[in-house]
Design a protein around this nucleic acid. Structure first.
Lengths: 342, 342
DNA sequence: ATGAAAGCGCTAACAA
DNA sequence: TTGTTAGCGCTTTCAT
């Protein structure tokens, strides 16, 4: 395969000049540039990126660590991150962590192997006690979609608590009082599940309603549809009355709706349902799902911008203090909940 | 940041010995290995993968080019490919091509830049006239999920035609005669759309039914739910009678079901619906969607195996002739179609 | 505006 | 079982 030296020889210039042309260095005579590009074309030359990275120390690749692409939320998020990165000439290496601690620790080691310049990381298995693992890293890191881990790291997060609280308030506003929470996890103490449960509890508490344990639907195997259906079934089987459902993500909500309809409950007549994420499916379920749009596009844009800013920081100079960006969130009312009396 | 030389110094060995330990070379005294690993640990050393790739010429990375991760079929497929690769110690660099010709041509150039050793490619924008672009490449390539492009390239495909034909036959078997086809594309002549349409036409033809143009639902903007709903609406608005729907993928089917239900048609009573892909959503839609399982897991496994075999081929020796693997496919009957009289 | 020399960090090839 | 030497292909630094 042709190397830069081959191109240089053919164009009658030095390798450095070829390098200059290919990396957009401006002070090159137009005729020289043309000859170089012609030689590149003739030889079908493609630059060897590993050599370039090794020498320059920068890859233009950013890592994206998410649990699983098959979950529409993360698949759609990955597409948004990729698009944002591309707008700035960056590429993305995706590392699914499989919801495992091991996977997440592996992703955190990756930038030190020098293939990616920095990392956008959406933790799902690590918890607050691991905060120290995210500090004092020697590469740029942006954390996504979770609560604060550390004041020393850039975060792009969403109003988890307020989002679920608003969702629950909507159900309360339309008169529902037996509201199930679908998506409880035993494992984490401070992850999305805990925060979203908090929003649920706060909303009930503000109206003096106690949490009924029988209304809590557990989904320790992950926030998939199957588990939403299963958790809903468990709640219904407990014999408790249910007239509303707050699910901690849309997949759970869709699974729960499935189970409700299988059992002949009408939505929203018998049971009103709210989700979280606003994935594409939510718009086309039957009935269309009322849900919380967490501002995925904004999250992706801001995350990439924060990372870029860190990548451009000069080592010596004082660095910008860590940022906590909370994306705007919006309750999207559709058919799975009755209209509020206005 | 520590280099291999630093580790070597600390362990009192040569750099080559460190290299040997880290790459699993077996003939090393146990005590030496222990000392090296201790030094690695002490220094928090991580290998520089770009240097390793540059020197060895192999990266252990395979490229995966798919249109878009937000589409559940591709998100789920990506997870399967990643899992299959990991089982063999390979990593995956995902390149979404955005359904564009430019994106796909870019992905095809990537391995020549030497970061990935080979490519698993699911084309969506290229067509038969581009077959020559896929031949005589100087790296291993496996094509996915489409028709044959060239006898000179490994393919892992599915029974597109037979799958849709079986789906259409099911509808015909239960007495439906006005069957809409959702997902027609003007652009491609030999892509999935064309093949799936062919299956539809064949099934009708075998029973002497002519294709009614008004029953063809176009989705040139992509096989998303929104377009399934839109195409279904267009068909219904044409005034033609409809008692069955064959959608060319599940997202389209779910969108079509949404539109049908919005208009008060019962499923499967008034209209029976069949999809293609068996994404997770299909199991939990209301009603649960009858669909064609294309054998995604098998496709991923076989694709990675074929690529691995090519990567291991010795340059001089005669190479295995190209393989065309057609994954097994299964019609999954759920609630969106009536049971067949047996 | 272009070139020459050096070296990024690792492993192939060979030697011991 | 371990070490030495060389060099992968590029960009940095410095020179002109």
């Amino acid at each position: 395969m042709a190397t830069m030296a081959d191109v240089a020889r053919r164009a009658g210039v030095s390798a450095k000049t070829v390098s200059n042309v290919l990396s957009g260095y401006p002070y090159i005579r137009e005729s020289t540039r043309a000859r170089v590009l012609a030689a590149v074309d003739d030889l079908g030359y493609e630059i060897n990126v590993t050599a370039r990275i090794l020498r320059s120390g920068r890859s233009g690749l950013i890592g994206l660590a998410v649990p699983e692409l098959g979950q529409p939320y993360f698949g759609e998020l990955a597409d948004e991150i990729l698009a944002a990165a591309r707008r700035h000439g960056l590429h993305v290496l995706i590392q699914p962590t499989g919801f495992t601690r091991e996977g997440e620790l592996g992703a955190l080691r990756e930038p030190r192997r020098r293939l990616v310049d920095g990392l956008v990381f959406s933790p799902a298995a690590l918890d607050q006690s691991d905060a120290h693992l995210l500090e004092n890293l020697d590469y740029p890191l942006v954390l996504l979609g979770e609560q604060m881990f550390s004041r020393h790291v850039d975060h792009v997060t969403m109003h988890n608590v307020e989002g679920v609280r608003a969702a629950t308030d909507l159900l309360l506003d339309v008169g529902r009082r037996s509201i199930a929470a679908i998506g409880m996890l035993h494992a984490t103490t401070a992850g999305s599940a805990a925060l979203r449960y908090l929003g649920y509890r706060e909303a009930l508490g503000a109206r003096g309603i106690a949490v009924d344990e029988r209304l809590l639907g557990w989904a320790d195997d992950g926030w998939h549809r199957a588990n939403g259906a299963r958790a809903m079934a468990a709640v219904l089987d407990s014999g408790v009355e249910v007239d509303g459902v707050v699910a901690f993500n849309d997949a759970l909500a869709l699974g729960a709706m499935f189970e409700l309809q299988v059992r002949g409950r009408s939505i929203p007549g018998d049971v009103a349902v709210v989700g979280f994420d606003d994935i594409e499916d939510a718009r086309y379920s039957v009935p269309a799902l009322t849900t919380v749009d967490p501002g995925r596009r904004e999250i992706a844009d801001v995350a990439v911008d924060l990372l870029r800013a860190r990548l451009d920081e000069v080592p010596g100079a004082t660095r910008r203090p860590p940022v906590l960006h909370v994306a705007d969130l919006r309750l999207v009312e559709r058919e799975s909940t009755p209209a509020r009396a206005s």
